Simulated assay, not measured.
Amino acid sequence: MKATFKAHMRFHTNYCVCESCGKRCRNNNQLQEHKRARHGLGRIHKCAYCEYSSATKEALTIHERRHTGERPYICDHCGATFHRRSNLVQHIAIHLPEKNFQCDMCPKKLKSRKFLQIHKHNAHTGRRYGYLCPICKHRFEKPNKVRAHARRVHGLPDEQHPPIVRVQL
């Protein structure tokens, strides 16, 4: 969209710079949020549902969607829904036919930078993790499998799911 493009171009010319680390922000508001989040200026935004607090309003909004079940980002290809935009962007890669991201440690090619990052961690670091169901302690390879298990076996909706425990194998 034209307005989005103009805002993006302004980022390259009119931006605020953090004097502590050099990060560029689109405006002074973002700069102040960055400073609170990264340079210890306090977590002033409090969750209405639990003890969580964040330095930015955006992080709080995303967090609170876990409590409310709101998933405003919808995949046009399959209808999958997400609580944050970055998860939708990452998901869309599964619908792409191309595998343009080459692993620099083996011949494997993947559909997205995120999938490449996951592959490199799983295949080349030697560190492996499992994820435990907080109810029955059954172990799974991925956290989304724990949530699906909790829905199917324990009848637990996502918004009531306790934190998933990650264990090193």
Score class of each variant (00 low, 15 high):
F101V: 04
C50F: 03
E51C: 06
I118F: 02
C18P: 11
G22Q: 10
Q117A: 03
M1C: 15
N27W: 09
G155S: 05
P134K: 04
R24L: 05
L96H: 15
V167W: 00
E159D: 10
V153W: 03
R84E: 07
F140L: 00
R10S: 13
R43M: 11
Y49G: 01
E33T: 05
Q32R: 07
E141N: 09
K99I: 02
A93M: 03
V17C: 11
N122H: 12
C21V: 09
L110Y: 08
H39R: 04
A48H: 07
Q160G: 08
C50P: 03
R113A: 15
E58C: 13
I118Y: 05
Q102T: 11
V17N: 13
R38G: 10
R166I: 10
V89M: 14
H161V: 04
T81Y: 12
Y52A: 14
C47A: 12
T68W: 08
F115G: 10
V89F: 13
E33C: 06
N28R: 11
K99E: 13
H95I: 07
F115T: 14
Y49T: 00
K46Y: 07
R65T: 05
R127P: 08
G22K: 06
D104P: 11
A123N: 06
R10F: 06
N87H: 15
G126W: 00
E19V: 13
H12R: 09
G22T: 03
H124K: 01
G126C: 00
G42K: 00
Y52I: 07
K120F: 00
N27P: 02
G40K: 13
T68P: 06
H124P: 02
Q117I: 05
A148M: 15
S53P: 07
H12A: 05
R84T: 06
I118Q: 14
R84V: 06
C75I: 04
R147I: 15
R147K: 14
E141Y: 01
H161R: 05
A150N: 12
C133A: 00
A93H: 07
T13N: 02
S112R: 06
R127G: 04
Q90I: 10
I164K: 10
L132A: 15
Y49R: 01
H39W: 05
F82P: 07
L88F: 05
Y15E: 01
P134I: 00
E33Y: 04
Y73M: 00
K120D: 03
K109P: 03
L41D: 10
A59I: 03
S86A: 11
P72D: 08
C78H: 04
H124M: 02
L116P: 11
C18S: 09
I118A: 04
A59M: 07
R36M: 02
T56W: 02
K142L: 09
D76L: 11
C106G: 00
Q160R: 14
K2C: 14
E159P: 01
F115N: 13
A7H: 11
R10H: 09
H121P: 01
H149G: 07
P157D: 06
C47I: 10
K99L: 03
R43K: 15
V17S: 14
N144L: 01
A48P: 01
K2P: 09
P157C: 06
K114N: 14
T68V: 01
K109D: 04
E51R: 15
H34E: 06
